[in-house]
Write a protein that binds this DNA or RNA. Structure first.
Length: 516
RNA sequence: GCCCCGUUAGUCUAGCGGUCAGGACACGGCCCUCUCAAGGCUGGGACAGGAGUUCAAUUCUCCUACGGGGCACCA
């Protein structure tokens, strides 16, 4: 048995990739098969090599080990789709020759127009078949003349397609509902649908274990297998990880980057364990649910038919509990090792040392100053008043932003930082200054708000360096967290009230009981 | 709008016709304790609604509601 995961190197390594990867690998190992990693980089605009590297790094951190992949090779490579152009070209030609695909010369404008029209008439937006019956010879000549075009799948318009999903049973789709999918884009690269089917076949994939979002496009894939005369694999559509509001997990509402969890000090074995609890459960001898288990144990008795299909909410509180459980059951020796490794293996370590250095009077001070860089959860706490931008300012001229405005400011910071191609001091500097200018507050006040959001305290190393060192994943998470706090007036109020109480108590302790 | 999937407590789940509906996170209380955690005990809290099938439905079927996903020259 052979399975694969096929992440797309666009952006941060996604926790969903880890989730699907876990089940794929465990399935392969359980059955003594192979687990393949394939990089789906057919989207030229969005794919980056950097992102690809991060995928390897994060999946390896999690503890997943693939038998074949771009980085480790294998007998059915190349494993990067951008390097398989000739294979897709040949496959496309086969379909063109046997009439199951056709060239389409329609412009993007025309397609937009008909889709809009269909939407207006409340119909399912789909290709209208304008080029479907072009003369084959004509079509060939136009293509040879260099006219830009795509290649589309000629979908049957009658009957229905049955997807035999391993978890759901037969799922029927009316063929009339299925679009003539583009297989080859005008840039000559294949779409997911084509590349996926061709590669899965050539890589001898027997079981496709992927996210539920693909279920609806499976009929297209089935049509492709048929067009090629190939045997389709077994399909297993896993439930989607969800935000607290049950929508598909997204970085707006949850940290989705595996890098974030690594940097936040989550143990990979706890993360894997937690993912193994999503839509799945194991039992102990007494028949109760087993909460803690190793990858090996998970793999040993994995049974995909036990997967439950309701979309599991990715609840960080339980992850934290599990992580603590792992931490508490280590021997002190191992714990020390893990902590030191956590710091040592983190490339931020050097950067933190550099920033903290000038503030030290003893080695023991290091921990205090380094805390903001590694801490995972940051309660709003004592410095919360800074989140209302300008409110913490001692300047009389300070422009204060109200709750909504402050929230908008933090969200703007997120958007600008998110868009940075280079996570460098200068780029961060520029982005944050723009955000401050946009908000119309004084530079010091705006940056102070960001500083407190990032470092949790007003006294910290210079902001841009700090942000650079803290890194993208954690920085964005902390800013989003503050934006979310600001979105909930009660929460922030309570936080500030608690903080002032804390402050009063501290002062009381310092100066003795106040006179009656 | 159309198509598809799903629905046990706030959350993760067990259950596959007859159960006091089990476990876990979170939450409350008590205990332990110099604090905080951890730990122990304990409490509240769920089968979305309605028809049907059956001696018997959380479990099977249908309808409704709700949630989600898809409908791209993104994956």
């Amino acid at each position: 048995m052979r399975v694969r995961i096929a992440p797309s190197p666009t952006g941060d390594p996604h926790v969903g990739t880890g989730y699907i990867g876990l089940f794929n690998q465990a399935f392969a190992r359980h059955h003594g098969g192979q687990f393949v990693l394939r990089i789906e980089d057919t989207d030229q605009k969005r794919s980056t090599l950097q992102s690809e590297q991060m995928i390897y790094k994060s999946l390896a951190w999690l503890g997943l080990r693939w038998d074949e992949g771009p980085d480790v090779g294998g007998p059915f490579g190349p494993y990067r789709q951008s390097e398989r152009g000739a294979i897709y070209a040949a496959a496309t030609q086969t379909l063109l020759d046997n009439g199951t695909a056709y060239r389409c010369f329609c412009s993007a404008e025309r397609l937009d127009a008909i889709r809009q029209d269909q939407r207006d008439r409340k119909e399912t937006p789909r290709y209208d078949g304008f080029c479907r019956d072009l003369d084959r010879e004509q079509s060939r000549l136009r293509a040879e003349a260099g006219q830009t075009h795509v290649v589309r799948l000629r979908m049957r318009t009658d009957g229905e397609s049955i997807v035999a999903d391993a978890l759901r049973g037969d799922v029927a789709f009316d063929n009339k509902q299925i679009d003539d999918q583009v297989l080859l884009k005008s840039d000559g690269l294949p779409t997911y649908h084509l590349a996926n089917v061709v590669d899965d076949h050539h890589m001898h994939i027997t079981h496709v274990i992927r996210a539920e979002e693909w279920l609806n496009s499976t009929p297209k894939h089935l049509a492709l297998y048929e067009a090629f005369g190939w045997e389709p694999p077994v399909f297993v559509h896993m439930p989607l990880l969800r935000n607290a509001d049950k929508s598909k997990i997204s970085k707006r509402k949850n940290p989705t980057s595996l890098e974030f969890y690594q940097r936040a000090g989550i143990l990979p074995e706890a993360m894997l364990n937690f993912l193994g609890l999503m839509g799945y459960s194991r039992k102990d001898e007494a028949g109760n649910d087993l909460e803690k288990f190793s990858l090996q144990e998970f793999t040993d008795d994995l049974d995909l038919t036990r997967i439950s299909l309701g979309g599991p909410v990715f609840d960080l509180r339980k992850l934290d509990w599990l992580n603590g459980l792992y931490l508490r059951t280590m021997t002190p020796e191992v714990l020390v090792e893990r902590c030191l490794d956590f710091l040592r293996e983190d490339e931020r370590y050097q950067g933190v040392a550099r920033l903290v250095q000038e503030r030290l009077t003893s080695l023991g001070d290091f921990l205090h100053h380094a805390e903001p860089f590694f801490e995972s959860n940051r309660p709003a706490g004592l410095a919360a008043r800074h989140f209302l931008v300008g409110s913490g300012s001692r300047k009389k001229t300070a422009i204060k932003l109200n709750r909504e405005q402050s929230q908008a400011f933090f969200e703007d910071c997120v958007t600008r930082l998110e868009g940075l191609l280079q996570w460098s001091h200068d780029a961060i500097d520029a982005a944050l200054r723009q955000a401050v200018a946009q908000a119309g507050v004084q530079v010091g006040d705006g940056l102070m708000a960001v500083r407190v959001a990032i470092a949790g305290r007003p006294a910290a190393p210079p902001l841009f360096e700090t942000v650079e060192v803290v890194g993208r994943a954690l920085t964005l998470h902390r800013l989003r967290q503050v934006a979310n706090w600001l979105a909930d007036p009660q929460f922030l109020e309570a936080e500030i009230a608690a903080a002032s109480q804390e402050l009063a108590a501290a002062q009381l302790a310092l100066h003795g009981a106040a006179p009656e």
